[in-house]
C-alpha cells in the first residue's frame, strides 16, 4: 500500500473530529472520499499532512509519518490542495507556481507542464494570483502542488462553487494527472464525478468510515447513499 492509515484520530481544540479511521490507497489508484459536510473528510487530509492535532498510524511508502511536520510529509512526496485553495494573493501566478517546487533537485513536473495542462495560467503568469477567477485559482492551486512532483495528490473539493465548464476542466486535469502516474485521494461532494473517475471510494460519517467499496457497489447501495450522502 502506498498510503495506509490505521486508527487515525484528530482534534480541533478539545472536540474530536476523527474517531479511528482506517483507509488505504494503492499506487496508481484514484480513491474518492465522500460524505456530508462535517463528516471529517477535510480533517482527514489535514491530519495526514500533519496540519491538525492527531494520533494513530499513518504510513506512506512504508515510512511512518504520523509524527512528522507538514513540510517533512510534503517532502516525502505527498501533495495537498486545500478546500480554500490558499492561493498567495499578492504574488503572481508564476511565483505561486514556483513556490510549489520543493527544495533540492528538480522534479518531473515544471512550469511548462502546468501551462500545458491549463494554458490560461501562462496568459495570467504575471498577474497577481488574487485577481484570478475562482476556477483559475483552483487550477493554479492544483498545478502549484503538482510542481512539487508528488507521488500522491490529495485534493479537497476541487469543484466546489465552480461553473459547469470549470468543473469539467478540473475533472480533465485530475484524469490527466492520474494518467501521468500520480496517485490521487479526492474529497468530493459531487457523486457523479467520484463515481466516474475513481476506482475505489470511502464514505465518511461522524468522523468514521461508514462504507468502503467500488463505484459500482456504491451505485447499487441506495441505503448508504440515502443515509450518508444525499442531502
Amino acid at each position: 500500500m502506498m498510503l495506509s492509515v490505521q486508527g487515525l484520530q484528530a482534534w480541533y481544540g478539545k472536540s474530536q473530529v476523527l474517531r479511528g479511521v482506517n483507509l488505504q490507497v494503492a499506487r496508481g489508484e484514484i480513491v474518492a472520499l465522500l460524505g456530508r459536510n462535517g463528516a471529517g473528510r477535510s480533517t482527514m487530509l489535514k491530519a495526514i499532512m500533519g496540519g491538525v492535532a492527531r494520533d494513530g498510524r499513518i504510513q506512506f511508502d512504508g515510512t511512518e509519518i504520523g509524527r512528522l511536520a507538514p513540510h517533512q510529509v510534503a517532502r516525502l512526496g505527498l501533495g495537498y490542495v486545500p478546500e480554500d485553495r490558499s492561493i498567495f494573493p499578492d504574488l503572481t501566478t508564476a511565483q505561486n507556481l514556483i513556490l510549489g517546487e520543493k527544495p533540492g533537485p528538480g522534479g518531473k513536473f515544471g512550469l511548462d507542464d502546468a501551462y500545458a495542462l491549463f494554458p490560461r495560467l501562462r496568459e495570467r503568469a504575471d498577474a497577481p494570483a488574487g485577481a484570478l477567477s475562482g476556477g483559475e485559482q483552483q487550477m493554479l492551486a492544483m498545478c502549484r502542488t503538482l510542481m512539487g512532483s508528488p507521488a500522491l495528490l490529495m485534493v479537497d473539493e476541487p469543484t466546489e462553487g465552480l461553473a459547469p465548464m470549470m468543473v469539467q476542466k478540473v475533472r480533465e486535469l485530475l484524469v490527466a494527472v492520474a494518467a501521468r502516474g500520480v496517485t490521487i485521494l479526492l474529497v468530493e461532494q459531487k457523486l457523479d464525478i467520484a463515481l466516474a473517475i475513481s476506482q475505489r471510494l470511502y464514505v465518511m460519517g461522524h468522523g468514521e468510515i461508514v462504507f468502503e467499496g467500488t463505484p459500482a457497489s456504491l451505485a447499487g447501495n441506495a441505503q448508504v447513499r440515502r443515509e450518508w450522502l444525499e442531502v
Partner: peptide
C-alpha cells in the same frame, strides 16, 4: 530571492507554505 517569496507567501498562508514542503519554522 526564493526565500523572499517564501516569506511573502507565509505572510498570508503560513500553513500552506509548510504543506508545499518549505520548512516554515
Amino acid at each position: 530571492t526564493r526565500l523572499g517569496l517564501v516569506v511573502r507567501a507565509a505572510l498570508t498562508h503560513p500553513d500552506m507554505v509548510g504543506m508545499l514542503g518549505h520548512d516554515v519554522p
